[in-house]
Design a protein around this nucleic acid. Structure first.
Lengths: 214, 214
DNA sequence: ACCTTGATTGAACGCGCGTTTAATATTAAA
DNA sequence: TTTAATATTAAACGCGCGTTCAATCAAGGT
C-alpha cells in the first residue's frame, strides 16, 4: 500500500504499462530465487510488486507463464554477462556476488537447476558447452587436462563448479560464515588447490601410513 | 486397494501395528525422495502404503512428524552403512546404487540437503566430519593434500562429492545416459582424474596463447 | 463528446491440501 | 463374555492456492 493513484512524477500509464509488468517480473525472479517455485505463491509475488494477484495473471497468463518469462529474463542476464567478460571469470564471480541483481539471478538459476522440471535444463546445457569451450581453448591463461571424453569431462567440471552455490546454505552453517562472499572466500583456496593439483596425493607406494612434508 | 481385511497369512495385528507404521514410513521415504518434501502429499504417501490419510496422521502426528521419523530412519541407515564398510568407499558407492533401499536413502538425503529447512543439516555436518577424518587418516590407501584449514578443505571436498548426486537429472539429459549407474560410470574417470591431478595444467608460463602437445 | 482499449482491483470460485472427527473393526485383558 | 484400548476408515472441515470475473479507471482515437 504505497500510494493509491497519485505519483509525484504524475505520468501514470494510460492503458499500456510496461513498467508495472517489469516490476512484477523482477519481484517474481526474487521470490522464485528465494523460496523456489513450488513454495512461491502468486499472492506473494503480487504483494512484493505491490499489485493485486489478478494483475499478475493478467500480464503473464499463469504462474507457469510468469516462470517462463523469468527463465528468459535470467537466461539473457546470465549469458550476456558471461559474454561481456568471458575470460575474466574470477572477476565475473566477484561481480555475481557484488551486483545484487546478478546474485539473485544466480540463485534463480540454482533453484531452476535443482527443480525436477525441464525449465532449467538449458542453463546446464549452456554451462556445459561453455566449460567444454574452456577445455578446448583454455581459460584465464590456464589450459585444461585433455581427455578422450571432453563432453563427460565438461559435464563433470560443470557440476563441480555449480556445487558450492547449490549447498551455500549448508556451508554457511558448517563453516560459521555470515554471508556468501565470506563462504566463497573461505572455499577459494581449496577450490584452486583442487583444480590445480587435485585432492589426493599421488604417492601409491604403501597403504594407510602417511608422513609429514620432507 | 489390494485387499480388504483377509490375508492368507491371517496374522493381522490386534491393537498394536508396528508393521503398518513401518510400511507407511517406507512409503514416505520413497515419496519424499522422489518428489521432495513440499510436493509430496500425505494422501500420496497413504495411497503408496495402501492406507487412509488419517492413519498416517494417527501414527506420526503430522506430516512434519513423519518427516522427522524419516530423517532418523535414513540417518541411521546411512551412518550404519558407512560404519560397516568405511574404508571400501568405492564398494560403498556400488552398493548405494545397487541396493534400492540405499539408493532411495541417498535420494532422500539429497532432497533433504537441498531443502532450505534445518532438517538436513546434520547429514552435511556428519559428512564433513567424515571427510575431515579421511583427510587426517587417509582414505582407501590414499593420503590427502594437507592444508592450513582442514575444516574448510573438508567442506569443499564434501560439496564436490555430493554434487553429482544433486545434479543427476541434469547429467542424464546432457550426457544421454539412461540410468544412474551409467551416468556415474561415465563421470568416474574424470572424477578420479580431478581428485588425483586436478583439472588445470600447471603450466603458468605465458598468458592467453595456448599450443598443442609437443 | 463518445467509444474503445487495456490496466487494475476486490471478490469470489473450485480445488487440493493437512488435519480432525465420529464411527467401526479387531484383539488383548478382565 | 464383557470391556477397554487401539487400528483403521470415510467423511468433513478450514485454509490457502491458482485462477476467473465483473466492475472501475484512465487515456487515445475518432
Amino acid at each position: 500500500m504505497r500510494s493509491t493513484t497519485s505519483d509525484s512524477n504524475s505520468r501514470r500509464s494510460p492503458n499500456t504499462s510496461p513498467e508495472t509488468a517489469q516490476r512484477i517480473l523482477s519481484a517474481a525472479v526474487a521470490e522464485f530465487a528465494r523460496h523456489g517455485f513450488t513454495k512461491t505463491t502468486v499472492r506473494g509475488i503480487a504483494a512484493a510488486a505491490d499489485v493485486s494477484p489478478g494483475l499478475v495473471i493478467h500480464h503473464f497468463g499463469s504462474k507457469d507463464g510468469l516462470r517462463s518469462a523469468c527463465d528468459d529474463h535470467v537466461f539473457e542476464l546470465i549469458t550476456s554477462a558471461k559474454a561481456r567478460n568471458a575470460e575474466y571469470a574470477t572477476m565475473a564471480v566477484q561481480m555475481m556476488f557484488g551486483d545484487p541483481e546478478m546474485s539473485t539471478a544466480v540463485d534463480y538459476l540454482v533453484k531452476s537447476l535443482l527443480d525436477p522440471s525441464e525449465h532449467g535444463q538449458r542453463y546446464f546445457d549452456h554451462y556445459v558447452d561453455l566449460v567444454e569451450s574452456y577445455i578446448t581453448d583454455g581459460f584465464a591463461g590456464y589450459t585444461f587436462r585433455q581427455s578422450e571424453d571432453p563432453h563427460g569431462q565438461a559435464a563433470t567440471i560443470a557440476v563441480m563448479a555449480l556445487a558450492p552455490a547449490m549447498l551455500e546454505h549448508r556451508l554457511h552453517s558448517v563453516l560459521g560464515t555470515d554471508d556468501t562472499a565470506e563462504t566463497m572466500t573461505r572455499l577459494a583456496p581449496h577450490l584452486l588447490d583442487l583444480y590445480l593439483h587435485g585432492a589426493l596425493e599421488s604417492v601409491p607406494d604403501n597403504s594407510g601410513l602417511r608422513d609429514e612434508e620432507p
